[in-house]
Amino acid sequence: MRRRQFLAGVAALPAAALAQVDPLDPLVWVVTNGAPVKQGKVTLTLPQLADNGNSVPIRIVVDSPMTEADHVKSIHLYSEKNPVRNMANFYLGPRAGKAEINSRVRLAGSQKVTAVAKMSDGSFWQDTAAIVVTLSACLDES
């Protein structure tokens, strides 16, 4: 294959390289029942580089008034590379006042993490964040 043809082929690859959650993924289907998962409303924050993969700070914020009529029912966290891909689920409701969760997670290597929020009106929203996780510099068998 000529170099120019090859480069053109590479450029034509889909731009959706930030792996969003696949709505057909069985883990996601359990929550959405096949409903579309839209981009927006959710902001997932992870550091760019983890200090240590055993404990990484994570913040999930969902833009919602958190009223009886319009609130976040649950937030589902998915890992791309962890052995257990559904990392956690958080169940909120109008009594939360604010849809924000902070926690610390384990990440088995560099990957993308996705948060899916289920709203009271039945809609689903997501955000994805990428993080670099390296192994410790020295072997520790203490």
């Binding site: 510099a137 020295c138 072997l139 520790d140 068998e141 203490s142």
Partner: peptide, 9 residues
Amino acid sequence: RRLRACLSG
């Protein structure tokens, strides 16, 4: 423990 970790390292 940390010194042991360094030794193993």
